[in-house]
Amino acid sequence: MPHSAAPILKVEHLSYRYPTGQLALRGVSLTVGLNEIVGLVGPNGAGKTTLLLHLNGLLTGTREPAHAPGLPANPAATGRQTTVGGHNVPIEVLGMPVTPANFPEIRRNVGVMFQDPDDQLFCPTVRDDVAFGPLNLEFPRNEVRRRVAEALTAVGLADYEERRPHELSFGEKRRVCLAGVLACEPSLLALDEPSSNLDPRSRRGLIEILKSCRAAQIIASHDLEMIVELCQRVIVLDHGQIQADGPTRDILGNASLMARHGLEVPLSIQYGLPLPPTASSPPSAT
C-alpha cells in the first residue's frame, strides 16, 4: 500500500496467544499513515479488539510471521517473549517501539476507546474523568482545565462537567469517553465499536465528531455504513490474520470477499447511494 506520509503506526508480524492457549493474532502486519482513517472489520472473535489492545502495549504479542515454524507453541512455555530493546518488537508508534520504557509516551499518543463506556468512566464526575489522562500526564492545572473544556466542547457536552457518569445516557457516556481520550491530544485514535448500541441520532453525532478529529484513526466496527462514511481504507481481519487491506469501496464492495468473512456489502455501496451530507453545525447534546 502506498502511503502519502510517514507511518504513525507500524505493525509487523504481530502474533498473540491468550494465556488460555487460544491463538488470537497470527502474523499481523499493517501501517497507518498520518491523518489516515482506517476501518478494521471482521466477524466476532476475529481478533479486532486484541489487535487494538496491542497498540498501546496493554497486550504484548511476539514478532512471528504467520507460517514460522513453531508458531503454535505457547510463547510463555517456550520462553519466547518480546525482546525489549528495539529490533524484535512487532509494533512501532511514531517510530518508537512499543516497549515498557516507552509506555508513557506511547499511551499519550495512542488513545484507546473501549467498547463499554462504563469500563472507561471510572471517576466520580465527568470533569474528573476527562481530566484523568491530562492529570496523569502531569500537565499544570490550568492546562488540564483548558483541555477538559476543549475536549468536552469537541464532543458537544460543554456544560456536563459536574455531571455524574451514572446519570448520563448511553450516548452521552460514549461521548464523555471520547472526550477523555481526546483530552490527551493523541496522534492515533484506536476506537473499538464506537457506534455500537447508539440510537441513530447519537450515532450521527459521533460520526460527525470523528470526522472533525485531526488524529489518525483506526476504527474496529461492524457498522459498515459508518466505515464507508469515515474511512478511505479498510482492513479485513479474520482468524487472527489480515485477509484484505485496501480502499474502502474496493474491499467492502467485493461480495465474495465479504461473504467469506461473515460480512455483507454495505447497502450504500450495493445501490451506489451518495454519502450523507456533513452536518454544518456541531452535534448538540442529546
Binding site: 473501549f114 472507561q120 471510572f122 471517576c123 466520580p124 470533569r127 484523568f132 492529570l135 496523569n136
Partner: peptide, 22 residues
C-alpha cells in the same frame, strides 16, 4: 472481568498509581 477492563482503560490513559482529582 470488569475490574480487568477498567484497569486496562486506566493504563491506557497513563495511570501511575495516584488518583488525582482536578
Amino acid at each position: 472481568n470488569r475490574a480487568e477492563r477498567i484497569h486496562a482503560a486506566m493504563m491506557s490513559r497513563g495511570w501511575r498509581g495516584r488518583m488525582e482529582l482536578l
